[in-house]
Computed example of a mutant assay.
Amino acid sequence: MELTENSVKALLAKLPQLKTEIQKVIVGQDAILDELLVAFLAGGHCLLEGVPGLAKTLIVKTMSQALHLSFRRIQFTPDLMPTDIIGTEILEEDHVTGKRFFKFNKGPLFANIILADEINRTPPKTQSALLEAMQEFEVTYGGQTYPLDKPFFILATQNPIEQAGTYPLPEAQLDRFLLLIKIGYPTEQEEFEVLNRTTGTKKADVKAVINAEDIQQAQALVRQVTINDDLVKYVSSIIRATRPDTTTVPYIKEWVRWGAGPRAGQALILTAKARALLKGRYAVLMEDIHAMAPAVLRHRILMNFKAEAEDITSDKVTAELIKTVERPKNIG
């Protein structure tokens, strides 16, 4: 469907409405909500990390209510099997002919929005079952491939790896998440508001403001946002600077075990485009790249033991790179 100027304006007007509906339930967390919307517009999956009780699950559930899409929640546990999320074949009988046959019974992955709750509570075998779905938007069972519904968006939550009973996600799967969003404790005023809202009788009425067609159009529109070639080279310079084998940056060689791959550059450009669109612009600015770099790179830069001992995180490395990598001249 070709988007006209009026339909583009109508589509962009719905994006702030989506955030407004979510904020009927979620107090504060403006930056978190913006990053979630960016990932959604860019067509990627998101990983939310934070200690228990910070409303990670509530944010995802509320977002699904504001979107006119099918939603399934998968609670990951140590005994969860791959077939529990993909689906399995069941034996059925044709009552007319009496013949028996196997029919594929679709699992909870067959929905538009998947809440993968506490994804690091389940063993790697089940975590890896998500890989094909996340990358190819399809699943394979018994040699047969089944396409997933579109749009397809996995929002996974995890508790910090240091906590007991967790299984760190494999690097290959981490890289499939467009963004890793860290959720911290609320401010004093936000916590006061949370307590006020959640201990009374009043319940927020969240309305669905965007449907599947709107989302697919918005995702197509993101691809049309322009980015200057100099900014593309700048993104490439940042990504290449994260690699200790080839970089000339001393602290990368000192602290980083391995750096980000080309998918990180793709993610940074796409999310910068999505952020520009959310801000009502049709061109990427330097601020879009800088705003999205931490969430794009924090799970794609692996720190070494020396960095961990000195409390040097991937976020600190990203902040240093933004300061030191040469910027293109005359770019806003």
Rank of each mutant, 00 (worst) to 15 (best):
V194M: 15
P160C: 05
Y185G: 04
V209K: 01
A164R: 13
Q224Y: 01
G165L: 13
E191I: 01
L178H: 05
A156P: 08
A218R: 06
A172Q: 05
R176S: 11
Y167M: 03
N196I: 11
E191P: 02
I227K: 00
G142L: 02
N196V: 12
I181Y: 03
L131E: 02
D205L: 13
L195H: 11
F153Q: 03
M134N: 09
D149E: 15
A129R: 11
E193T: 14
G184A: 08
P151H: 02
T157F: 11
L178W: 08
Y167S: 05
E193S: 13
G142H: 02
R197D: 13
I183Q: 11
L169A: 07
L195T: 13
E190D: 15
L179S: 04
L179Q: 12
Q219L: 09
Q224K: 15
D205V: 12
D175E: 10
P168M: 04
A208M: 06
Y146G: 08
P186I: 14
G200N: 14
E213C: 00
A156N: 06
L195D: 09
E132A: 05
Q127K: 10
Q189G: 02
F177T: 07
A156M: 04
E193C: 02
Q135Y: 00
P168D: 05
I227H: 01
N196R: 15
T201G: 04
A218G: 13
P151T: 07
V139T: 13
I227A: 06
R176C: 11
T198V: 06
E171C: 09
K207G: 00
P151R: 05
E171Y: 07
A212H: 05
P147I: 07
G165Y: 10
N211S: 04
E191D: 12
P147N: 13
Q224M: 09
G200A: 13
L131V: 06
L178G: 06
T226V: 09
I181Q: 03
V209T: 03
R197G: 10
L179C: 05
Q163L: 15
A220C: 02
L130F: 12
